[in-house]
């Protein structure tokens, strides 16, 4: 027997559908309203441009007191995202605030794609490459985007 879904999650879900953010979508599963299939487009002008990245997002029991759990399902070459798709983003950890929401988190992730931060790496190898040979790193990121993140229709 499941506890009723908090009003907050219902409203957030409604607003995500009714006032969508360009380049971002999040759809809850029919059988689990706390589990979302997320799609984020690589920002224009970045080495992820043209890519469509799939993520999974889960709202834990005490959401919004704790941050959503979120990870990339699509492979991505990025210094702040590891091989398991985990994301190093302050607002998902210490800087989470219950006044943030799914929408703002996804926007932050999209912004992270536009501004990789090799100084605070989660993926050491990628971060090293990024610092030592940025041109090469960006080229790899473009190749991975074309390889793994081009929309399959």
């Amino acid at each position: 027997m499941a506890a009723p879904l908090p009003k907050r999650i219902i409203k957030e879900t409604e607003r995500l559908q009714n006032e969508p953010v360009p380049g971002i979508s999040a759809l809850p599963h029919d059988d689990n309203a706390r589990y979302f299939d997320v799609m984020v487009e690589g920002p224009g002008g970045s080495c992820y441009e043209g890519g469509v990245f799939n993520l999974e997002l889960f709202l834990p029991d005490d959401y919004p007191m704790t941050a959503p759990k979120i990870r990339f399902l699509t492979r991505i070459y990025h210094p702040n995202i590891d091989r398991l798709g985990r994301i190093c983003l302050d607002v998902l950890k210490n800087n989470w605030s219950p006044a943030l929401q799914i929408r703002t988190i996804l926007l932050s992730i999209q912004a992270l794609l536009g501004a990789p931060n090799p100084e605070d790496p989660l993926n050491e190898a990628v971060a090293k490459q990024w610092k030592e040979n940025q041109a090469e790193a960006i080229k790899t990121a473009r190749e991975w985007t074309a390889l793994y993140a081009t929309a399959k229709k």
């Binding site: 605030s97 219950p98 006044a99």
Partner: peptide
């Protein structure tokens, strides 16, 4: 009640930190 829950988790204002 929301304020009380928020300060259980963090002693910072959820809006302006």
């Amino acid at each position: 009640k929301c304020m009380a829950r928020a300060v259980d988790h963090s002693l910072h204002c959820p809006m302006c930190r």
